[in-house]
Design a protein around this nucleic acid. Sequence first.
DNA 1: TTTTTGATTGACGCGTCAGTCAATAAAAAA
DNA 2: TTTTTTATTGACTGACGCGTCAATCAAAAA
Lengths: 192, 192
Amino acid sequence: MPKVGMEPVRRLALVDAAITEIGSRGSLDVTVTQIARRAGVSSALAHHYFGSKENILTAAMRRILSMLGDDLRAAQKGKETAIERLHAIVAASFSERNFRPDVIAAWLAFYVSAQTSGDARRLLKVYHARLRSNLIHELRPLIGARAVREAETIAALIDGFYIRQALRAGSPDGRAAIAATSGYIDRLVAQG
Amino acid sequence: MPKVGMEPVRRLALVDAAITEIGSRGSLDVTVTQIARRAGVSSALAHHYFGSKENILTAAMRRILSMLGDDLRAAQKGKETAIERLHAIVAASFSERNFRPDVIAAWLAFYVSAQTSGDARRLLKVYHARLRSNLIHELRPLIGARAVREAETIAALIDGFYIRQALRAGSPDGRAAIAATSGYIDRLVAQG
DNA sequence: TTTTTGATTGACGCGTCAGTCAATAAAAAA
DNA sequence: TTTTTTATTGACTGACGCGTCAATCAAAAA
């Protein structure tokens, strides 16, 4: 079976396997062997390509956040008004692709690892900064100086719905989260 | 030094040490030896009293949540109106005693362990249920049927500020969180 | 065909950690 | 005083996980 050009294939498979494994175990306490098995390779190969377990986990995190980033960008495209773009940000945050049990569990686990790992911390901060700057940019023309503080609150609301979903049993209810968050924004704007 | 009646003293010291250790490491990945050393005893003694590491961690979690519960109850006492009690709930949630880096880190870590451990999950659900029922009870006379949905949103807001604080560097800014959350409630009530 | 290069893994060393156990020491009870 | 009970720990073990390494295998290049 040894064919040339396997590296990118294996890397992707391992990262995907890591996300799934973290999601299914609900914790970063996954072994390289578990990840490798799920990806259909040996643990030695995982080390061969990634060097260390931490590198695998960081790559998984990067992938989750970049998926979210892509969605955010895509959702805002074509929207004409600021309020539409705000709604698009909220919708993307709770879209079927991102607001999923395994992704939520992984995302939560990364929050914890950000307490220790510099890489994880940096990546999460980038995501925070981008979300924040997006929100402020759209809010400013609508509510002026209050945009900064309100962006923080909206972000907290989004993160809050994420973490609470992590504790729920059933499949995520993105619509309720969207309704609440968008509702908050609408009331904000209506009041000026 | 062996004196009788050490058990409750040791238990308390070990649980406190566990909270501090988790907070300082920012993760549940703490060893029994670390906890025991911080409490000034051997790891064997920790096992002697608690039987297992998981029991220590669960006890630590129970303690954090019961501290929060006490504060919540105390804060509501003496308040006459529903809106005052709502503000008291928010203030207690972000009080100096609870909204502290090590407690926040431990709390976050417990959220993760709730994905795996039945005990942790159960404890967190109790906290959620109590907060939810408190909020609904006070909101109902003010906004009627919308109370249920809004209680969920307020809870998400609180949890969201917690998790976002976990990523920040400096010491927690409880006032800002209180201002935002209480502000949300005020606007809610003002609109009827 | 021979050589090189990339893919792949089984086996293993090294460290860590949870939990056990037997032994010691001192207080309390008999 | 002798016996029992409680507190306490050093030493140990069995399991587990990361990361390494030498070896194998097949495709590609020479």
